[in-house]
Structures are given as C-alpha cells and as structure tokens.
Design a protein around this nucleic acid. Structure first.
Length: 499
RNA sequence: GGGUCGUUAGCUCAGCUGGUAGAGCACCGCACUUUUAAUGCGAUGGUCGUGCGUUCGAAUCGCACACGACCCA
C-alpha cells in the first residue's frame, strides 16, 4: 500500500526521472562544455534602456546560462525567464529558430527548475522588456524536483532555513540579505586593512576557553587525549599577538557558545575582534562610529536606516553616556545615591523584581538594573561607558574611579552590537582578576572565567597600551538588512534536527 | 521553562455549530508565434502532523505528544 502511495506522491519526480533517462540515452546528460560570455544583470544594466530600433540596427549576440524559473508556451513559440546570480532575463524561444524537431521533442519537455544555456540576440518585446531571441538552447542540468509555488514563494520559515538553497532560488529578498552580509564583511576588512590592521587567524579549539563569560562546547582530542573547547572568543590570543609586536590585528571568525537559541542567538556566530596598540577606548568609539557610518553609506547609500519600522540616523554623532548616567536617565525617580552603595542598589533591584544573589557586588547589581531597565530602550546609536570592574575582568581600571573600567558597549535598536575597552596590560592586576573569577566559578558561577596562566605570562613580557573591541557581525547585518531574526542572516542557522 | 497561533494535494491556502475533502499555482493531455501570476478546455493528485479518547459518525470536539512561528522569562 505505502509503496504505491509514495510513488503517487512523487509522481512529478518520477516523470522527471524518466525524462532524464531519455536524455541519458541521447548522449551526455550533464554536459560541462557550455560557456556563457555574460551574466544577465550586466545585459539589463547595459542594454535595458536601449530602444527596440537601436537593438535591431545594432544586434547584440549573447550567451547566457541559468535556471529556468517560468515558462509560457504558446504553440510554436514560448517565453521563459532564466535566473543567474545577477538577475532574471526573458528568453523568446520560437520553433522555427531552432533545428527541426528540437522545439517539440526536447525544449517543450524541459521543466521549470532545469538549468539551461542559450545563445541569441537581444531584442525588446512589444511591452518593452529586454529579452533574448534564442537560436541555440541546451539543457545543462535536469532538475528532478519541482520548485516551490512561483507566486507566493516559500511561506514556511522552516523550509527557508532548512533548505536555504530553495529560499535563495525563490527569494530576491533573501539573496539580497546575504549579498549585503558579504558587502559588510568586505567593507570591514578593507576599512581595517586600510588602517594598517593585519588580518590573523587564532585557534578555534582552545585548552582554556577565555576572553568572555559563556558556557563553551567541549570536544576531545584523541591523539593528545585531552579535553578541548570550541572558543567563546579569540581575545586572549589576539592580545598575545599584540605582545608579539603585531600592533594592529583583527580576526573575523566564528565563536561558539553553548547556550539557548533565540531570534538573537545562534550557538555559532561571527565576531569581528580587533586590537590596536597605543590607543585607548575613546579611539575605538571614534573608529566604530566612522566604520558603522561607512557601512551604512556603502550598503544603503545613506546614513538613515530603517529597522523593524524604527528609523535610526547614523549620520549624527552617536550618543555617549555612562552606565550610571543611563540608569538615571531612564529611571527618573532614582537619584545618584540609589546606585552608590550595594545596600541602596540592592533595594532598587528588589523593587524591580531582579533576584540579587549573595555574591553580587555593587557593580553586578548596577549592571542587572541596567540590563533590565536601560538596554532595550537604547534605540539610537549609543555608546555606554564606565562599566564596573566586577563585570569587566579583562578591561583596564579607570584612573579616576577604580570602581569602573575604561570600557564601552555600543547599542542600536535596543541591541548590543559591540563591546570594547582599553585592555588591562597590568599582569599583576590581571592575575588578581583571574583569581577572583576562579573564586566565583568555585562559588557556582559556571560562566566565570578560567585562570589562564599562559596569558598572564604573556602580559608579564609586556603588552603596550592597547584598546580592543568585538563587534557581532550577525547583529550588525540584521540591522542593515532589517532582519527580525538572526536566522535570517545566517545561511544555515542551527535548528533542532528533524526526526 | 510559560503563553498565543499554526500543521489539510508538490507549493500557497479555504473547509461554518461534527455527516466520508476544495480552489489557485505546479504537474499531465489538447489548442495557441510578443507572453510575463499567459490564456482556454480537460484529466491526475490527500491514512487532513502523530497517538489516544468522545460519538452511530471526527479534518472539525477533548487530551497528550512532535514540529514550527511569534511573544514573555
């Protein structure tokens, strides 16, 4: 019973398989010798504005290839659209322009989704669409499965994520998102290289997962019989390079964090980290502002961006305020004194229904209040500075206020996009901070950092004054592509396995 | 983890207070040499997410589970 039904269900596939068998019998079914001489986007850009007459008096002969997306057969002639990576182009295929029998015996048996190569002359149709009058056409690859419905496309988000290739075939919007992603990454690379930054690659597998506070993925190296961790950040390796004399380095690569999935979190995500010697955090805020503004101009052609119905202007100077200032700003009923001591801040947190654990110091409580009441309201591009030492174990202590660090985070649309600071290059202070993290780990905080003795040794050799920053590429791309979910900007987002 | 909504033909979706399943597109056949969601005519295609229950009878009602989308922590 079930066998017959499966056959019925796959009727269309069965038909296409039998067509493929006919093609195999006729010769090479998957030829590789076709060469196009142009992509259709270039033709549209160059000849789209030419008149019908201009194209007739000065005929342009072209060879193009792509996937057949639509077809309208009208007896002895047909129109179809083919799509390549640059766009769509209409073909006019007439029986009498092809060898005897080819139109009826071969062309008409091809299917939407098949990949074809063709040659002909550019012309304008009666309604003015640039098209190719075909006099040679070949099937290059037979598609055995039908494409999704042409008008609505794929409505099921899950299919878009699980079968991204179908989404890319069907959705111009989706193709555009990933083109913009590529443009942004290229822009950042060129921006940093132009400023004497050196692109480097540091270990993805680390014996001690450092540079951030997050749960790591574990793996095992058989030959060495040792536990390894997928990195949660490249930070400590990049700073070793600063010690080594590479005074400006950056890395754009994946980080892995063993935490939940959400519209803003994927277990592997792409991070830009860069470090600049003889600089401090204000320099990086300026650099970030310039870079983000440059990206906007590069990919959108303007500094005003629209994200999920809200507009943000990257043209104006970005707002800057400290953690405490921002809390007071968004909580007008609070006064400075309410955030000045642990007791007062704990009371504020309690009123906000924030659970305060015994181990929390003033700084941690302030950050909890910040995250609950401020973060999601930081809509316009904003730098928040002066993060407490307690939550910034790798950042340099501020000279005037030892309670805070020379650190900033960058927010747009209520989302954290970047995190940077003047690096802690005092080896003894760093050793002390690691010891404190280990204490917290032993007290049950499984996100606290490990003690990285090798890194402390590197610092003991002397790291010049340095500022460093990390920018979440995925979140940045979301912003510039108006994507509501991180999955929309990841080609292959992590999903629960099917069955 | 909690809440809301969803899961019906290859795709996009209808299907009323329970009475044995429908459209458009795709596919197949016929006609058609400037169409573009081509058009006209005809045909094919469904264990209605899974399981259990209520009922004479379940796509429809109830419970559980799976998967997904969105919101919240």
């Amino acid at each position: 019973m079930s066998e017959i039904q499966i056959q019925d269900e796959q009727e269309q596939i069965r038909q296409r398989r039998s067509k493929l068998n006919e093609i195999r019998e006729r010769g090479i079914a998957f030829p590789t010798d076709f060469r196009r001489n142009v992509v259709v986007g270039e033709l549209l850009a160059e000849y789209g504005e030419k008149t019908k007459e201009e194209l007739e008096t000065d005929p342009i002969r072209v060879k193009v290839a792509g996937r057949m997306m639509t077809r309208r057969i009208m007896g002895k002639a047909s129109f179809c659209h083919i799509q390549d990576m640059s766009g769509k182009m209409q073909l006019y295929v007439a029986r009498d322009h092809l060898p005897e029998g080819f139109y009826n015996d071969q062309f008409k048996k091809w299917d939407i989704g098949d990949i074809i190569g063709t040659e002909g002359v550019l012309f304008k149709t009666n309604v003015g669409e640039l098209s190719i009058k075909v006099d040679d056409i070949r099937l290059l690859t037979k598609a055995l499965r039908p494409l999704p419905e042409k008008f609505h496309g794929i409505a099921d988000q899950e299919i878009k994520y699980r079968q991204r290739y179908l989404d890319l075939i069907m959705s111009e919007q989706s193709r555009k998102t990933f083109l913009i992603r590529s443009k942004i990454v290229t822009y950042i690379r060129e921006f940093l290289v132009a400023r004497q930054f050196l692109e480097v690659e540091t270990p993805m597998m680390q014996a001690i997962p450092g540079g951030a506070t997050a749960r790591p993925f574990k793996t095992h190296h058989n030959a060495l019989d040792m536990e390894l961790f997928l990195r949660i950040a490249p930070e400590l390796y990049l700073k070793r390079l600063i010690v080594g004399g590479f005074e400006r380095v950056f890395e754009i690569n994946r980080n892995f964090r063993n935490e939940g999935l959400s519209t803003r979190h994927n277990p592997e995500f792409t991070m830009l980290e860069f470090y600049q010697a003889y600089a401090e955090y204000h320099d990086l805020m300026d650099l970030t502002e310039e870079m983000v503004r440059g990206i906007a101009l590069e990919v959108l052609g303007q500094t005003l961006i629209t994200y999920q119905g809200e507009q943000y202007d990257f043209g104006k100077p970005f707002d800057r305020m400290t953690v405490v200032e921002s809390i007071l700003h968004f909580n007008p009923d609070l006064a400075v004194d309410d955030l000045a001591t642990r007791e007062a801040a704990a009371k504020v947190a309690e009123n906000l229904k924030i659970p305060v654990k015994d181990g929390y110091g003033l700084g941690k409580i302030q950050i909890e209040i910040f995250e609950k009441t401020v973060e999601h309201r930081l809509m316009n591009p904003t730098f928040i500075t002066a993060y407490p030492v307690e939550v910034s174990p790798l950042a340099r202590r501020n000279d005037d206020d030892p309670h805070v660090t020379d650190r900033f985070e960058f927010f747009v649309g209520g989302r954290e996009i970047a995190n940077g600071f003047t690096e802690l290059n005092d080896a003894e202070d760093q050793a002390e901070r690691f010891r404190k993290q280990v204490e917290e780990k032993e007290a049950g905080d499984d996100e606290a950092m490990h003690y990285d003795a090798d890194y402390v040794t590197a610092l003991e050799h002397g790291m010049p004054p340095t500022a460093g920053e990390g920018i979440g590429i995925d979140r940045l791309v979301m912003l510039f592509t108006d994507a509501p979910s991180i999955r929309d900007v990841l080609l292959f987002p992590h999903l629960r396995p099917k069955n």
